[in-house]
């Protein structure tokens, strides 16, 4: 295949990666921004979302779309509830002290992952996409039209759905009382508390919401990727990369970084190897943290 069409396809797959990554990283960024908690178990919430999507889809009969829509609602709710409970039972008691919460979320990572191994099993499971029409892409340079150059309607749907969800989250944060309360807590925990905001409940809600976003991303990607109890590692690593490059706690930076990392991951993976893409990204992150701790797009620390 020519370079042009291949780059186009790689970019399209990169867009899908970027979309899912944006949602997952947004959850991590939100939790860090509001609670100052680095959630190492975030990838496992992603995994749980995919696994629950499989459970729901395989237990609901009928057309694949019914199971998919059910999963889209049930998985984030269940995962959000599990995360909120974990916050209430464990993190709250640690007073959100940074080192202790990191150790606790590492523990949570193992508990969730191994819990999934027991209930879900070691074998990866596929989930049928609700629709998956093959869409040919006419390529005007001519020569190779007709073979291989196609995408699927489901991939385009993932990109569209992600944009819709992102707009929804933005509206939630900027236009609703819940968003206002979350932003107030983020700015100044003590003052928020003094004004009667139930900070502990806001924290549980934020932690649950962050995890639910990861679960939602997983439900979207699982028809393309399969559910597997070990699948949490990559989204965790990539979300970390995105959140740090975008600036810890900066939501706009997170989105820009998700786009850059997702696209470059897609493109480098196609032209070189996925491993090389991740090596470059992890080293980039370490360097960003060392030399520009506020992130590439983040403002100076307040």
């Amino acid at each position: 295949m020519d370079f042009g069409p291949q780059l186009f396809l790689a970019s399209l797959d990169g867009m899908v990666t970027a979309a899912v990554l944006a949602l997952t990283a947004l959850g991590l960024s939100l939790v860090f921004g509001v609670m100052r908690v680095v959630n190492v178990a975030h990838g496992e919430f992603f995994m749980l979302g995919a696994v629950i999507a499989w459970f729901v889809a395989s237990n609901i009969g009928g057309h694949a779309a019914i199971g998919f829509i059910a999963a889209l609602i049930i998985a984030p709710l269940v995962v959000g509830a599990i995360a909120a409970a974990a916050d209430w039972i464990v993190l709250k008691r640690l007073d959100y002290e940074p080192e202790a919460t990191i150790v606790a979320t590492i523990g949570l990572l193992y508990i969730l992952q191994q819990g999934a191994l027991v209930t879900f099993g070691p074998v990866a499971q596929a989930v049928e996409p609700p629709f998956n029409k093959r869409i040919e892409i006419p390529w005007f340079e001519g020569a190779n039209v007709g073979w291989g150059l196609f995408t699927t309607s489901y991939k385009l749907f993932v990109i569209g759905a992600t944009i819709a969800i992102l707009i929804g989250v933005w509206l939630l944060l900027s236009r609703t009382k819940i968003g206002l309360v979350m932003r107030a807590t983020q700015l100044d925990r003590e003052t928020a508390q003094a004004f009667g905001i139930p900070v502990e409940k806001v924290y549980a809600l934020t932690f649950g919401f962050g995890a639910a976003l990861a679960a939602l991303a997983a439900v979207l990607i699982v028809p393309i990727q399969q559910a597997d109890y070990l699948m949490g590692g990559d989204p965790l690593l990539l979300s970390f990369i995105v959140v740090i490059i975008g600036g810890l706690g900066s939501l706009r930076g997170t989105l820009v970084a998700a786009l850059i990392i997702g696209m470059s991951d897609g493109i480098i993976s196609v032209f070189f190897t996925p491993t090389l893409a991740k090596i470059i990204a992890t080293l980039a992150v370490a360097m960003v943290l060392v030399f520009r701790p506020q992130g590439l797009f983040g403002a100076k620390a307040q």
């Binding site: 464990v90 150790v103 523990g107 508990i111 992952q113 070691p122």
Partner: peptide
């Protein structure tokens, strides 16, 4: 007892830190 033996690591971490 189980294939999910690494759960020991998770539970131990959480209990110790708590």
């Amino acid at each position: 007892v189980t294939t999910a033996y690494l759960i020991v690591v998770g539970v131990a971490l959480v209990l110790l830190i708590l």
